[in-house]
């Protein structure tokens, strides 16, 4: 059964690993220069990076971002439906039990998917190491081209470290599950893409920040740390925590109660100068502070492992469901 599964997968696996190898070769060729520049120039080295590096940064990041969805769509969803369409399950199920048939398919294709994504993420994470470190140390300062987002930012977090492995496993098994339930290839692929996207967005924007309790800091509001005043007058400040992920913030008054900041803050001049200083000093004197909930940059790996574990457990549960379903429901 392993032989058959591999025989069916090998062409696609060759294409996928070929693509990973090409990207890896590009990154391995350019990576040492980046590491060298970082050692030579420190965090200012981002200015030294040109269009090649910017391009590779985006390609690598998006490759890891989209790999799990592609695996779910093209390996997961059709895994069973393709056999149901061709009727070959009626041949396979007379040669082996359907439980074994499905388990081997899930195991072999799932492991290959995990290996491909893991390899891709490994090489992308290594290549981006100096860049991510420099971005973290630059935190809050104006960005350099595309090198803007710290590792804990939703878009970057998903494309580094070990989480892509969890995503790939989950997307794959989710695709298989949708396939065995609705039994039609194209609808299964479309539904997988939609559902997986919803799960990813929900995890990044809503769920992830709750995986660990955030730290809090209360800071005075100055012309230097004030980043933004939104349309309803709420303030956004920067904190002195390189690479931190700010979950939420609000203005508090002298009693520590959450309040709207006085409307005149908007008229404070932001250029450094006596007038600006006086304006913000008055705000501080009235007891206004900004309370910020955030995750420090050092939690990156804790978040990574925790989220990977969650996705892998979800994938295992779905796999169990698939096996039960195919034994009971699929004819």
């Amino acid at each position: 059964m392993i032989w058959l599964t591999w025989r069916q997968l090998r062409t696609q696996a060759a294409v996928v690993f070929g693509a990973v190898a090409v990207l890896a070769a590009l990154l391995l060729a350019t990576g040492p220069r980046i590491a060298h520049l970082y050692h030579a120039h420190g965090r200012a080295f981002l200015d030294e990076l040109g269009r090649t590096e910017s391009g590779l940064y985006l390609i690598g990041t998006f490759a890891v971002l989209f790999a799990p969805a592609l695996i779910g769509t093209f390996w997961g969803a059709p895994l069973v439906t393709r056999e149901l369409d061709a009727g070959t399950h009626r041949l396979a199920w007379t040669l082996t039990t359907r439980t074994r048939w499905l388990l081997v398919k899930l195991g072999v294709v799932g492991l290959v998917a995990i290996a491909a994504t893991g390899l891709l993420s490994l090489v992308v994470t290594w290549w981006n190491g100096p860049i991510d470190a420099a971005i973290a140390r630059n935190s809050g300062a104006p960005g350099h081209g595309v090198f803007l987002l710290p590792r804990l930012h939703a878009l970057v977090f998903d494309t580094r470290g070990v989480v892509p492995i969890g995503y790939a496993a989950f997307a794959f098994v989710l695709g298989v599950t949708i396939g065995v339930v609705i039994r039609r290839t194209l609808p299964a692929m479309a539904l997988l893409l939609a559902l997986f996207t919803v799960v990813q967005v929900t995890m990044a924007l809503e769920a992830r920040s709750h995986l660990l309790p955030p730290d809090h800091v209360t800071t005075t509001i100055t012309s230097a740390n004030l980043m933004l005043i939104d349309i309803s007058g709420n303030l956004t400040v920067r904190i002195d925590e390189p690479g931190a992920w700010i979950v939420s913030q609000h203005t508090v008054d002298a009693a520590g109660q959450a309040v709207s900041p006085p409307s005149w803050v908007g008229k404070c001049p932001l250029e450094t100068g006596q007038a600006s200083q006086t304006c913000f000093d008055r705000l501080t004197a009235l007891g206004y502070r900004q309370r910020v909930a955030y995750h420090p940059a050092g939690r990156f790996w804790t978040f990574q492992w925790e989220e990977t574990a969650i996705y892998l457990v979800a994938a295992l549960c779905l796999a169990g469901f698939c096996v039960r379903w195919i034994r009971r429901r699929v004819s």
């Binding site: 061709a86 009727g87 040669l95």
Partner: peptide, 26 residues
Amino acid sequence: VGFVAQDTPTYARLTVAEHLTLGSRL
């Protein structure tokens, strides 16, 4: 039990010899 299903399904991308290998392995 040997079963020849309706429309005699086979794996389109596998060769004749590979079908025999498949049987011998399972």
